[in-house]
């Protein structure tokens, strides 16, 4: 499978990265080189193999339902949450107006 300029433009749009025509042109051969290389995986017979789910055997722990159990995972910290916001206003994050 290889990509053309239209595909690269579409991927860039999905990834929300603005790219110029010239950047797209440059990326097409680069991405095709990488994709052609990774496609050698197709040689491997994996018909009897389950995809890896956990790299080290381990089970998912579930936590107790306790509010603000740990200050690092709990709420009630609006100032900390908004401290780095480019456009914090009245306790909200501001974004360009969205029309739904």
């Amino acid at each position: 499978m290889s990509v053309d300029t239209a595909t690269v433009a579409k991927i860039a749009s999905l990834a929300r990265i603005k790219v110029s025509e010239a950047e797209i042109e440059a990326m097409v051969p680069e991405l095709n080189g990488i994709l052609a290389w990774v496609e050698q995986l197709g040689e491997v017979d994996t018909s009897q193999v389950e995809p890896m789910t956990a790299v080290i055997p381990n089970t998912l722990r579930l936590r107790d339902d306790v509010i603000d159990a740990d200050p690092l995972t709990g709420g009630d910290k609006r100032d900390a949450v908004l401290a780095n916001a480019p456009a914090a206003q009245h306790g909200f994050f501001g974004v360009p107006k969205v029309i739904e």
């Binding site: 499978m1 990509v3 991927i11 994709l35 491997v44 994996t46 389950e50 789910t53």
Partner: peptide, 23 residues
Amino acid sequence: ILIGTYVLSAGFYDAYYTQAQKV
């Protein structure tokens, strides 16, 4: 990011990502 977006996109997920997790 673009490679990752591409290999996860509709129609390619199994050929790339699932295969990679099997390998």
